[in-house]
Design a protein around this nucleic acid. Structure first.
Lengths: 337, 337
DNA sequence: TTCACAGAAGAAAACGTTTTACTTAATGTA
DNA sequence: TACATTAAGTAAAACGTTTTCTTCTGTGAA
């Protein structure tokens, strides 16, 4: 493999000159610059990242990690898109993306090995993490941004969904369509998003004068199976709600499946609205009305922000809150209030 | 950050001794081994991967890449699981996983930068790639294994699906259930799997004495939309086939969607069988009968094989062909032949 | 004519490891 | 007793860069 010395020799200049040309630093005459460049090309010279990293202490590798609670991010319809956005942005800036899928990292407070070995320059965390793990990262001063998650007393940046605005969107849409008896499919999950959404739903309903007696709660995991469970409990109530709000699309989809099995027609017998707008939402029967979170943008911004942090010497902490949009499909029907 | 010299000093030994202890090489007395180990722990010493890589020329980073034709592997229900298997195996062996999602690499014959910069020690490629790109990899002698893909004249290992066996499984099942008029939803795709599956289907049907007139072909992309298109064309034929074989589950799912829209009942009016067994297959209505490819195992084996190759000095080329299993759900109905 | 200065280039140290070759002490063998 | 062998440990070179000083040369100002 050709190294910087080979190039220098071939060009009849010193090693430092080649380095300066390649890195566009120092002052180099146009003529030697051209000559060296031509030779790097001819010899197909590429700087050895290890040698470089050793002296600069700068690394162009970013790692993505997610919480243990959820399934693999590759199969997760939310994180997979976040990842797509991250990847896109990172590649554009010449960075490499590492994936640390192993779930054990947040159990213990042990850092994944690529961190102490200094092979990774920054971290993007998705979903909820063990506070002890976060603490460890802070102590080690690993540049980190949190995506779709927020932690009270951390110095790390976060890119979040505006769950308050999104939940308001959902409720307003249901009310506008005449629904006054609402069932909530709420996720058994300490993820701040779930809480925030529920909180907003309840507050909003009460603001609009909906009585507590007309609000029905069903709990389950934030998965299709959980939605299945949650809606089952709700259907026991009399009178039945005319519409359901789910903590996320996965639950909504499970609920639709349950309702179909029980021969309820959606939306004729009961309306339902989701949250997230995962890909599957447009393919359910009926297509799911939901609140869209722009997941790719979320990833893109997270990556962008991390690279900024890496550049700055003393970055300000900052929270980015992304707005949502209502995607009206066919799972909500207008009823007479 | 504490380095090997700090440890050596603290332990009152030379740097080389520490290195030997940490790497378990050379001969070291039990007492100093213990002492040094204790100190590495106390000082929280972790070898700098750059310094190490610089001298050993060994890297514990593996990159995963996939072809441009398919959507992001994160959202792809097949590759996402392959990736899961890869990740699992890699982490177990202390390797890091890089993701090179950018599609431009196989367009040109330029190598992704992490290769010439020697930051990555091996490659796992999923799906079909530009031969020029493969050639380039061979010239650069990048240790590589191909997953779910095979190339005629390459020296690279591959982990493949036994499409012949799988397609036979599907056809035999349809025949056993009395179907004699078969429609094929064929993917417009040069991926070897698609060809192999179709080829086997046709040969098998002819072996069983099914007339050409009873075989109907519909083409489309290997996506739900493609399945939609393909089945539409097939339904124009009279007499209608009683069963459909799809090139993959995505097409089968699209077909089911189309049939539902046209008020056909599956499997009462028409049966359908898929290939791959993606997650969604168990959630269609009716749940899809299909041929399962063990995607996680595929990834795991690919990773395992790559690590072996990295170890051996002069590895034999080898193709691994994974068998499939039939997953009988509810989309195929028994009919009188 | 002298001096200061800027531009261009190079020498050498530093980065943190591994590894080879070497030294020393201890042990066993003839 | 002398000699070979082995175990335990060390010194120093090497890996391929970047970067900090220097040096040198030419140019314009005083």
């Amino acid at each position: 493999m050709v190294n910087i010395r080979d190039v220098a020799q071939e060009a009849g200049v010193s090693v430092s000159t080649v380095s300066k040309v390649v890195n566009k630093t120092g002052s180099i005459s146009e003529s030697t610059r051209k000559r060296v460049l031509k030779i790097t090309e001819r010899l197909d010279y590429h700087p050895n990242a290890f040698a470089r990293g050793l002296v600069t202490h700068k690394v162009e590798n970013i790692a993505f990690m997610w919480d243990r609670s959820s399934e693999s991010p590759f199969s997760n319809p939310f994180y997979s898109l976040v990842l797509e956005g991250i990847e896109e942005e990172l590649v554009k800036k010449g960075y490499n993306l590492l994936i640390a899928a192993h779930s054990s990292y947040d159990e213990s407070s042990i850092l994944p090995s690529f961190l102490p070995s200094r092979i990774v320059g920054g971290l993007i965390l998705a979903g909820q993490f063990n506070p002890a793990f976060i603490k460890k990262l802070e102590d080690a001063e690993v540049p980190t941004v949190l995506v779709d998650f927020y932690l009270e007393n951390t110095q790390f940046d976060s890119i979040e969904t505006d769950n308050t605005q999104g939940a308001a969107l959902a409720i307003d849409y249901l009310l506008k369509n005449g629904h006054r008896k609402i069932g909530c499919l709420v996720g058994n999950n300490e993820h701040p998003s779930v809480n925030k959404r529920l909180e907003t739903v309840l507050k909003r309903l009460s603001n609009y004068g909906i009585s507590k007696d007309d609000i029905f709660m069903g709990y389950g995991d934030v998965t299709p199976e959980g939605g299945f469970e949650a809606v089952r409990k709700i259907l026991d109530f009399k009178p039945r709600p005319t519409a359901l709000v789910a903590s996320n699309d996965a639950m909504a989809i499970g609920a639709i499946r349950f309702l179909r099995g029980k021969k309820y027609r959606v939306p004729d017998d009961i309306s339902i609205i989701g949250f997230d707008d995962i890909d599957l939402a447009q393919h359910t029967d009926p297509p799911l009305t939901t609140v869209r979170v722009d997941k790719v943008t979320m990833g893109r911004i997270a990556a962008k922000r991390l690279l900024e942090i890496l550049k700055e010497k003393d970055p300000e902490r900052c929270r980015v809150i992304l707005s949502t949009t209502l995607i009206a499909r066919d799972s909500v029907k207008k009823v007479k209030p």
